[in-house]
Design a protein around this nucleic acid. Structure first.
Lengths: 233, 233
DNA sequence: TTAAAATTGTGTCATAATAACACGTTTTGA
DNA sequence: TCAAAACGTGTTATTATGACACAATTTTAA
């Protein structure tokens, strides 16, 4: 009986995560200002290595927890990056994923401990290694998925208004949307529950606060469509 | 300057591939009857290990070439499987992908050398490790992608008829489709070019043979939609 | 030689979804 | 109290979709 495979190379496995947030106006990334080697002082994605005694999915959750203090974050694997020289220190294969969080609900202490900062997508700096490619792919995938599934809600607080939701979609697709058609389309999904409350922060007419119908969200995850001109990708 | 990462575990990286084919009636898988250890005599996916001096994508192409004798096969990464005990021999992380090929265009010698056989999806045997989960996920992903992008053509010969294309979609989604609406929808994409030839194999009215407009295929890859009841997933 | 059977190509129609656009309401503050 | 800004809902024309009918082609058998 075999106990190991012979003639094969063991390689470091990393995980790198694109964390998206939304501040009400712009889509943002939670990036790390590195105060450790290699590439100290440069910007990178949050990442880590897969441990010997750890499932890949568990490792992803660990890395997200260390960054945000949150558990059960919504995330999707995007792609595994495996070019020979993508990491100049040592051959490393990286499993890349994106996560969506409520920008106001994570731990400031955790972010500080990782030296993490929210950066607008439009202002994003160069990132180390192939991390900029990862962000490009993550944004593309976010647009793809958000057009087909109601994952945008993961970026909003529990209670939100339709105009806030529209601003989110406009940020994701970097395009203006018609207020009236957007409202009709979103309401037709029956995913929103009127909380009876209104947005008291508004300086003009206060918009209705809705929350997500969690049961329908699960059921209709695959039935939701919000095409924005064939994804604009 | 660092030359290696310390305190991290190096792990075997495998690649496993689900190869789909279409015989005109049914969707099929190219599976390996293992004549090597571990799990000799059982069925598995085609796979292999990532080499030290090899890009991940190059490795995928190598594995597909060894199995089919073909280069430039259409394939998509699905997911990286990384549970601790998924391979009982040794901790192995597997990058899983699916490939689409013309069932009649690959090398019989290559298949014979790998002990590979076409098996109908409906008759598929139990597979080793987590390979059955991989096939489940691959089928789901194929349905998802084929509803949004014209990848089904990768499973057909260069020249094909609309009824053949319809049978392919019916096999992918395991559901009957209306002949007239299907034809209208496919022709409206303008992706098909009438070759002027007809299918001489038919015992009744000979259908028009079309070929794919390669230029439009590239351009409209993201604009093609063929929803079948919200993917039925 | 012709009629039946199988299959293909094209057309119609009612309904649903979408995009473009208008109007009235609420709220604050000048 | 009235103007400005933002919100909620409605209308209409166009397009897409699903359900369905009919005529044309080809082989086979009467």
């Amino acid at each position: 009986m075999l106990t190991r495979y012979n003639h094969s190379t063991r390689i470091l496995i990393a995980l790198d995560c694109i964390v998206f947030g939304f501040d009400g106006e712009e889509l943002k990334l939670l990036l790390i200002k590195r105060d450790f080697e290699p590439e100290r002082g440069k910007w990178s994605l949050m990442g880590g290595f897969l441990n010997e005694d750890e499932d890949l999915e568990v490792a992803a959750n660990r890395i997200l927890y260390d960054l945000t203090g949150l558990k059960d974050i919504y995330f999707e694997e995007i792609k595994t990056f495996g070019e020979i020289n993508r990491d100049p220190v040592e051959r490393t294969v990286s499993v890349c994923f994106f996560a969506l969080i409520n920008i106001h609900a994570h731990s400031q202490d955790a972010a500080k401990a990782q030296n993490a900062f929210w950066i607008s997508l439009k202002d994003r700096p160069d990132l180390i290694f192939d991390h900029s490619n990862m962000v490009d792919l993550a944004l593309e995938r976010l647009r793809y998925r958000a057009a087909l599934h109601p994952i945008g809600f993961e970026l909003l607080p529990e209670k939100f208004t339709i105009p806030q939701l529209q601003k989110l979609y406009e940020a994701i697709y970097d395009t203006p949307l018609d207020r009236r058609n957007f409202s009709r389309k979103i309401l037709s999904t029956k995913l929103l529950i009127d909380t009876g409350e209104k947005n008291e922060n508004s300086a003009t007419k206060k918009a209705i606060l809705y929350k997500l119908d969690q049961e329908k969200y699960q059921k209709q995850f695959n039935a939701f469509h919000y095409f924005v001109s064939d994804f604009k990708v």
